[in-house]
Every structure is written in structure tokens, then in C-alpha cells.
Amino acid sequence: MFTQKSQLDVLTSVADGIAALFFPSVEVVIHDVATRKVAYIANNLSKRKPGDDAGLEELQGSDLAPVTGPYEKLNWDGKKMRSVSVATGSGNDPGYLLCINLSTAIFEEARNALELFLSVTRLQPQPEQLFRDDWQENINTFLHHWIRQRNTSLNALNRREKKELVIALHEEGAFRARNAAEYIASVLSLGRTTIYKYLREIRGE
């Protein structure tokens, strides 16, 4: 069994480790349940300090679940945090409450930036006069439609499937463009000689 001091020492090391691993977005606070005070803070994000009131006046040791959360909190700057509390007490020993607070602000800002960047409302239709004869665009569209129909991916295609795709592209008329064979060979990671071999077989040459 840990003594009261050694238990706090261990929890302090755990708090420092978690805060270091997830820096700068995670704060770890250790509350002393017996004194209802903050015992330790690693990577202080909440502007509290050891000795501050922990806000546990109404809480009894028996009320503490081993793990509580995750739940949402609001920090002093108005930014949201997600928290998990871990109780260390047992029997008549109230022990400590280890609270891990993750600031989600950086993730929300990243999400908002991605949503703004990828917003379809800012897209305009492709100008027909520019893309009517874009053979690469047409090949890309057909190729990925063919792949999606088979519930696979470009990188997962085996050699047999690549040959089947070349045949399908030929039937679609994809090889009418001057440099289509070289382009398709590059996209499928095949040699040009392999593409030309498939085309000869298709044409019965």
C-alpha cells in the first residue's frame, strides 16, 4: 500500500508524463479529496494553483466512481475542455482525484479551417469550354468510378484487376488520346510495355 505521500508522488509523476505526452493541449490536476484542495497541476491551463479550493465540498469519498467521464467543461477563456476524473481512494482513505483536462480548442479550430477550406458552397461548376476535351479528367472519372464499384482502392489493385481495368478503359475509348497509354501506365504503376501488350491482346494483334 502507498503511504499518503508516496501515492501523491506517484500521481505527480503520472500527471507530468501525461502532460508531457500531450503537450500543449492537456492539463492534469490532482485534487486532495480529504482537504478539498488542489494538490498539484501539470501544464496549467486553468489558471489554478496548488492550495486552491478544489470545488469538492459536496462530494463524499464514497460518491467517487473509479473513472468519471469524459465530460465537457468550460475553461476560463471560454474554450471547451473534455475531462476524465480518476479516483484513487479506497475504503476509509479518500485518496486523490486525478483529473485529465483536454483542451479541444486546437481541434475545433482545425475542423473549422478544414470545413471552410473544403466548403462546396465556394465551388463553381467546371467550365465546359475548358474541360469538354480533358481526356485525363475523363480517364480519372471513369477509373475511380470503376474502382468504387468494386469496393477497392487504386493501391489495392492486383495485376489481374489492373488488366481488367485497362480492358474497361479501352472499351470506353480512353486510349484514343495521344498520350493516354503513358498516362494510364503511370496511374496504374505499370510499365508502358505492359500497357501496350494488353492493348495488342485486346486488338488480337
Rank of each mutant, 00 (worst) to 15 (best):
M1N: 08
M1L: 00
T3P: 10
Q7H: 13
V10I: 12
V10G: 04
V10R: 12
V10K: 11
A15L: 03
D16Y: 07
D16P: 05
D16I: 01
D16G: 10
G17R: 09
F22L: 12
F23C: 00
P24A: 05
S25V: 01
I30Y: 01
I30G: 03
H31E: 01
T35P: 02
K37M: 10
A39M: 11
Y40C: 03
N43C: 12
S46K: 09
K47N: 11
K49A: 15
P50R: 05
P50M: 02
D52F: 05
D52P: 02
G55D: 13
G55R: 11
E57V: 09
E58T: 14
Q60R: 13
S62A: 12
S62W: 04
D63I: 10
L64E: 04
T68W: 05
P70F: 01
P70M: 05
Y71E: 08
E72G: 09
E72L: 04
K73W: 10
L74E: 13
D77I: 02
K79W: 08
K79D: 11
K79H: 10
K80H: 14
R82M: 14
V86H: 01
T88S: 11
T88E: 08
S90I: 07
G91A: 14
G91L: 13
N92Q: 13
Y96I: 01
L97W: 04
L98G: 00
L102T: 10
L102N: 08
S103N: 12
I106N: 08
I106T: 12
F107H: 12
E108I: 15
E108Q: 13
E109N: 01
E109C: 04
A113R: 11
E115C: 06
F117T: 00
L118Q: 09
S119G: 03
V120M: 01
T121A: 11
L123E: 11
L123D: 13
L123M: 11
Q124N: 11
E128A: 10
Q129W: 13
Q129V: 09
L130W: 06
L130R: 06
F131Q: 05
F131W: 05
R132K: 15
R132H: 14
D134Y: 04
Q136G: 07
E137S: 15
I139H: 07
I139N: 10
N140W: 03
N140F: 11
F142G: 12
L143G: 00
L143S: 06
H145N: 15
H145G: 15
H145W: 15
H145P: 08
W146Y: 10
Q149M: 04
S153D: 11
L154S: 06
N155S: 10
N155E: 12
A156L: 13
L157P: 04
L157V: 05
K162V: 00
K163H: 05
V166G: 01
L169Y: 10
H170S: 04
E172T: 02
A174N: 03
F175A: 01
R178W: 10
N179G: 14
E182T: 14
E182C: 14
I184L: 03
I184D: 11
I184E: 05
V187D: 06
G191F: 09
R192I: 14
R192F: 07
Y196Q: 14
Y196F: 15
K197E: 09
Y198S: 00
